[in-house]
Each structure stands twice: as structure tokens, then as C-alpha cells.
Design a protein around this nucleic acid. Sequence first.
DNA 1: TTTCATATTTTGTCCTAGACAAGTTTGACA
DNA 2: TGTCAAACTTGTCTAGGACAAAATATGAAA
Lengths: 307, 307
Amino acid sequence: MKTTDLFFDIATVERETGIGKDTLRVWEKRYGFPLPVRAERDERLYPQPQVEQLRLIKRLIGNGLRPAKVVGLGVDELNVLLADVQTQQPSQAAHILPFIQLIKTHQASALRIALGRALLQQGLDDFLSKTITPLNQLVGEAWMRGEMRIFEEHLYSEQITLVLRNAISTLRDADSSPRVLLTTLPGEEHSLGLLMAEATLSLYGASCVTLGVQTPTQEIVSAVAAHRSDIVVLSFSEAIPAQQVKTGLQQVRVALPAHISLWAGGSGVARQRVVIEGVQLMGPLSDLGTAVEQWRNTSVPLPHSIS
Amino acid sequence: MKTTDLFFDIATVERETGIGKDTLRVWEKRYGFPLPVRAERDERLYPQPQVEQLRLIKRLIGNGLRPAKVVGLGVDELNVLLADVQTQQPSQAAHILPFIQLIKTHQASALRIALGRALLQQGLDDFLSKTITPLNQLVGEAWMRGEMRIFEEHLYSEQITLVLRNAISTLRDADSSPRVLLTTLPGEEHSLGLLMAEATLSLYGASCVTLGVQTPTQEIVSAVAAHRSDIVVLSFSEAIPAQQVKTGLQQVRVALPAHISLWAGGSGVARQRVVIEGVQLMGPLSDLGTAVEQWRNTSVPLPHSIS
DNA sequence: TTTCATATTTTGTCCTAGACAAGTTTGACA
DNA sequence: TGTCAAACTTGTCTAGGACAAAATATGAAA
């Protein structure tokens, strides 16, 4: 019993799916999909099911499939492909399943409380590496497989943000060293990695300033000068193309004074193979702790050093 | 001594100014501005000064001036007009200037502490309406005039976020009513308005769930079902086109069950003139408090009512 | 077989030029 | 002075074409 069929104009579809107007039109011509009905003045009106299908397609393309292989297909065939993706890597860890359960049943407060409890039980370092990191991964995988709704993912990151921000606020120390500036480059919208880095760095006594996400290169340089930062930390999520990570880091490195350290972390740099001159690539979060120690040893000339 | 002139392609200018590609091209034809240089394949390359001028123009148009009157003008004339506009609505209030000072001198911690102090002095309601709102406005104006760097604006919203989140955490009540779902539509990235709304609603005893920003229409509907929400609150910033606000609200209204209230707030709805069927437009934040009272009176049948 | 350079295809985004609905202003008339 | 239709303004849509950058296929050398 469908009361009203929902239709969206091309501008709305662009916003809802993240697929540009030009692309939508060219897909229609090349692959025959999406095929919207037309309003009076020949304007495209996309039925809601097509918008949903576009989101599905976007996910598959994000997974490495090519548009020609997926844009023409029907929903059934798309779901088969999605199932293929599914069989690849199920990363399981028993103790995080209860959290997944809370997400799937939409119990925001219970999730937040459970996370807070885990933090106090495990300590921040272990909490991040043994709970949050695998949880992120599992949620990311579920998202790719289409088993997690967008609003569920939104809710999840909201709760993690609350718990971590709370932890950081008790650690904050404005006058310690090194002074670290954290942000992401334009195109990278995920702030969770940033928050995890800030938590770790604060734990190791660094003084952190976060600029939020999407700070242009030139602005990072100005901010470093304004805050007299010693280190810039950039976070890259899985979603961002490896190529962009590389060129982005190179550009920032060139723009930044040589004596400022540049550290890059997040799952987006994990796949980075090449070494970039003057950039320290961080693997697990614990690398940050080590790096801070190292920075203290090399950059601050200790009085009365042994040899 | 300018080392490199900066140029931006049309996609970047669209993102930076919020003016659509089509509009940029049609302005060029109609008013002769902006007049970008051309790259190899006839692609437009906008010099940075033109981008800044576009921001100025955007602000003036947002204030009710017509494009034909402002798009052709030079920077000097624009600044005269801007001065006129600003004398009309004096967002100046002496007590917020110290905060501006802290932003311009990049003292993040001092700013946060000063904000926290103001919150405790004024109380949440007054803090939001008499400090944060005018501060937002002033920062927005400075930003449009190009007097505020991106990193300064990032830093500013980061500190406000911290102070407000902290306040909200003490107010949170999962079991009270009404149950409110807060988010923004795709295209709206600003979360500050959302945070202010959440703070106010929590103060008035509503049970808030925030989904963060950019939740697609259909996901909002699912989230409402999952959380058994009574009310959906959407926030729109000044940056978003009035047209988008209207169509977005209509789409959500149609998709949502009729018995769910839909409230819209933020400076983006303040200019909305038309009434949208089934949507409550909120002016100042205090409207939210009134609306909650009203909702309690109409929606929950009181036992033993007087007459 | 693997490695690397080169050719080919795919794909997103830009271009021009024209159209028109919705919003705003103007001006004639009561 | 207020009302209402005509005229103008403005943003966003349309079509069809072009081309660079990315991805993939091909083939020659190790």
C-alpha cells in the first residue's frame, strides 16, 4: 500500500548520493541507468528506488568495481556482487560483538555507557587498539556489505566521539611539549581517526590542537606558525584514494618548514607502499607513542647527555 | 613579493563559495564577473582575489541585495555596501569582542576557558542567545569578508563544540519525553547549530539523539522508526541556498509519517518566507523551548485536566 | 614466468548555448 | 495609497560534444 511515490530532482539526487549531475546524465546516456521520468519541462525526476540503487552502485564502485560493470545491472545482480565482496574478509573478535549488537538495536545510551566502561577497564591504549580499532573495521565492513544503515553508522560514530572527547578533556595539557597540530586534508571528512590520534598523543603528554577536518594546505602552514607547533599529524581514512594520500602529503611537506615534523596515520596510509621523503608513516596507533618519545630524544637537546 | 598566484578551478570555487557552477558561468556571461583566465582546454581558472570577491557578493545577496546590483561592482564599492548592511543589524555587542580577540590571537585554551566561564555566569539560555549566536554571526561576517582564516574558524568551532558538548553531557536524559532526533540534510555540513539546538532541547528536558550531519532523507525516516522519535529537528546554516531548504523540508515532510513533528531551525530558515505545510520554522533558539512546552500540552493527553 | 613501458579504453568533468519557471520590480489604474 | 497584471531578473535545468586523467590491456625485454 504505497501512498505516495517519492521523486527527487537531479540536484537532490546529487546531494543524497554524492554523484554529480554531469555524471548522472552521462550514466543515463552510456549505460541506460538511472532512467528517470520526466517532469513538464523535460526535467529529470528520479524515483526513490533508483536513488537507493545508485547508493548501492556507489558502494560497489568504492569497492574497486568499474562503473561499466555495475551501472547497467539490476538490483538482483548487484546484490550478487555485493555477496562476493562479503566473502572476502570477516574480521571477528568475540569481545566486540556485544557492541555491534547495541548498534544494530539502536541503543545509543547503552552503547555509550558500554564503551565508557570498556575504556576504564582496559585503559586508553588497549581500548583504542583492542576495542575501537576492530570495531571501526567491523562497522566499515558491514557498511561495505550493505548490512549497516547510514543512520546506524552515524549513531555509532557519534557515541565514540562522545566517549573519546570526554577522555581527552581530562588529559588536556596546554603547556606540554611537543606541540602537535591535528587535522585532515580537503576531501577527507572522517574525524574519528583524528580523535583517536589526539587521545593517544594526549596520553603521551603532547599538547594537541585540532583544526577539525578538511583544512587546505596553506591554512595548515599558517596554523603551524600561529600555534608554534612542532608536529603536524594528518589522518587518512580507508575511503580516500591512495594517490591522493601521496600527492597530498608531498604538497604539505613542501609547503611546511623543514624543521616541522609531518606524521601521517590511519587506515588510508596503511596501504601506502612508497616512502615519502620527510614524512613519517604511522601504522598502529601505538606508533604515535613511540614517535613522541623519539621526538623528545632527538629534537630537544638534553642537558648532561651521557656520551 | 608574491611567489605564486593562486588559481582555482570551477569545482573548487563552487565548494569554497557555495555558488553553483551554472551560476558562476551565467554570471560571467550576464555581468562580466567573475572573469577567470582560461587553462589549456578552455577551462576556467579563477584567481584568488575573484574568489574572495565572490564571497563578499554572496554575503550581500544573502542580505537581500539583487545580483544585478552587486555582481558587476569592484571591491571598494562592495565594502561600502557591506558597511551599510552591517549598520542596519548591529551584531556588535561589547562583551563578545574579547572572544574575537582570543580567536584572532589563536589562544585556543584561553578561548575555551573564557567560553566556559561565560556559560556558567549567564546560564545556558542566555549564553547561547547573547554570546554564542552573536559570536557566530560576527565570525561568519568576518569570514565572508575574508578577514578570518579557515584555520581560525576551524579552531573557533572546535572550542565551542567542546564547551557545548560538555554542557549537554550533564543534561542528558534518555528516558524523558519528547524524544527528539537531530540531524542535517545532505549538503549541510555545519554541526554547530545542531549542537546549540541539542543543548536547548536537553535543557527543556527533551531526550535527544543526534545523528551528526548529512543524513539522507530515507535514513531519517528509518532512524525515527528505530528510536521511536516524536520530533525531527533539522538545522540549516546561512551557507545553504534558501531553495534547498525548502525542497529539502518538503521531501522529508512527505517521507515522514504525519504524526511525527518536523521542526527546522538555524539562520538558514530565518530568511525562509513561505510557510511549509506541516513544518514548524523556528526563529531564535528560545522557540525550541516554547515548542517543547506546546508539544507536551497538545500531544500528551494530561490526566485530570482542569476543564 | 615476471617486470616494465606503451597503447587503448573507460570515465568524470568541463565546455557552449538555449530555455523557462519562480521570484521581484514596475507602472497603470482605481 | 493600495492592487494587480505585465515585464524583467535570476537560478537551474536541458542537450550534445570534447578531452585529460585513471584504469586496464597489450606486448617486448629480462
